[in-house]
Amino acid sequence: MWFAIAMLFMALLSSLDIGIYSYIGYKTNVTPFQYGLISAMWSAVFIISNLFLGKVSDKGNNKFLIVISFLSIMVTGVLFSFHNLTFLAIAYMFHALGVASSNLAISTTIFEIKSSDKWKYYIELQKFSFYLIRGLGLLSFYFIYDVIPFDYIIYFSVAVGLLTFLSLPKVSLKVERILHSFSQDFNSITDHIKMLSYLAYDSINSLPNAVKQGFISYKRVSTKMISLSMFFATFTGDYIFTILPLLIKSDISLSLLWLSYGITAIIISLSLILFSMFSNTNNKKVALFSIIARGIWLVSILSFVNNTLNLIAYIAISSVLFSVIDIALYNIFSENSSGYGSHIYYTLRELGTLTGSLLVGIAFTLGKEVFITIPIISTIISALMLLIA
């Protein structure tokens, strides 16, 4: 039960992310530079929150983390009710704190409550339910926007946050990640012993095969390179999506924008089921293909986004590819870090958002050539980081 309620809360927070940010773009006289700066400030708060709360997460204090999230969203609702640019921007910052603390709270609970052989399953289930509920939430924004004030949606999220706190099991025995880390180290030692024994009882000519069987077969992936690859992949998308509402608001209404994001999220959730059924979700090759394909799609199709159908297709395909990238890289990261240091992955991912948000406001004023060249370069770097890992 706790998992379902927690997924509802996280998905509502994600819906509010799109809802509040696009509301600011449509309902205020924000400039492109200010809009990019607000997005960057959200990312800065998210990053700082992860850095400070990461140690709390590694200690297993999930209840404390979810309390912070609940209180942050409560403050968000109060500030949003003033409906001017300054208060909306501050409300958006508190929303960032709420998202950061809830991510860490749920990740900590999964890694300590669930057996390590179930981590991959729950990460995939988390992503599927997250996007499905987020999609339904954004669709509801579209249908009730003219009937119920947006403020009430935030208040409903606060109530779900309270239910999440009450239902979330407290982590008492903090051993699962320790055991997984020990298992990883033990596997590494036994593989090295296997290599040495292979050499001792066979000829020196079999060295290449011994190395292949004993060492290279268990070479750990660099979590640092995985996180950097995620940084540049996130940068590429958020660089474009930060400015997107301002580019299309003369052609597409706010409610239609929410409808587009809602349909996209549901498409993503269904795609993730197929992805988990027919592909290895911690496969570097799958992630590499998705990084390259997404970069090409984002750059080449942007100029054709001038109606709702094209917008849905543009967001859907790029978002599905990003979800595949995120799941694959996070699974690889978690497996090689034994579930520790999730805040590092989240921090670098959000740092990509911050950098992209800041840079796009400047690049947009320098002309189309500069604007388009930057995401091409970041896509190439992201792919190279993954290859090096």
Score class of each variant (00 low, 15 high):
residue 126 Q to F: 15
residue 224 K to G: 11
residue 84 N to F: 09
residue 264 T to E: 07
residue 86 T to M: 09
residue 135 G to R: 05
residue 100 A to N: 03
residue 59 K to G: 05
residue 311 L to D: 06
residue 34 Q to E: 14
residue 379 T to Q: 09
residue 141 F to W: 14
residue 28 T to D: 03
residue 3 F to K: 02
residue 316 A to V: 05
residue 185 D to H: 13
residue 295 G to Y: 01
residue 366 L to C: 10
residue 357 S to F: 11
residue 380 I to T: 10
residue 251 D to N: 15
residue 144 I to R: 02
residue 87 F to M: 15
residue 355 T to I: 14
residue 153 I to R: 02
residue 211 V to T: 06
residue 222 S to E: 06
residue 377 I to E: 03
residue 126 Q to K: 15
residue 110 I to W: 00
residue 265 A to C: 13
residue 272 L to A: 07
residue 175 V to E: 12
residue 291 I to E: 01
residue 386 L to I: 11
residue 7 M to S: 15
residue 33 F to K: 10
residue 350 E to A: 11
residue 283 N to W: 08
residue 241 F to E: 06
residue 251 D to R: 15
residue 290 S to C: 13
residue 48 I to C: 08
residue 190 T to Q: 10
residue 210 A to H: 04
residue 278 F to R: 09
residue 102 S to R: 01
residue 260 S to R: 06
residue 155 Y to E: 08
residue 354 L to S: 12
residue 325 I to P: 00
residue 376 I to K: 07
residue 287 A to S: 14
residue 366 L to F: 07
residue 14 S to W: 08
residue 6 A to N: 13
residue 179 L to M: 09
residue 80 F to S: 07
residue 141 F to P: 09
residue 86 T to L: 12
residue 104 L to R: 03
residue 174 K to Y: 09
residue 375 P to G: 14
residue 355 T to R: 01
residue 207 L to A: 06
residue 264 T to Q: 07
residue 102 S to W: 05
residue 331 N to M: 04
residue 110 I to D: 00
residue 75 V to T: 12
residue 184 Q to K: 09
residue 317 I to Q: 05
residue 332 I to Y: 01
residue 348 L to W: 15
residue 231 F to D: 02
residue 107 S to Y: 14
residue 145 Y to G: 09
residue 255 S to Y: 04
residue 85 L to C: 02
residue 107 S to M: 04
residue 359 L to S: 14
residue 48 I to D: 02
residue 380 I to C: 04
residue 59 K to Q: 13
residue 235 F to A: 10
residue 365 T to Q: 10
residue 137 G to L: 10
residue 339 G to D: 02
residue 3 F to L: 15
residue 370 V to T: 14
residue 158 V to D: 02
residue 220 R to L: 09
residue 262 G to P: 05
residue 17 D to S: 13
residue 340 Y to C: 06
residue 349 R to I: 04
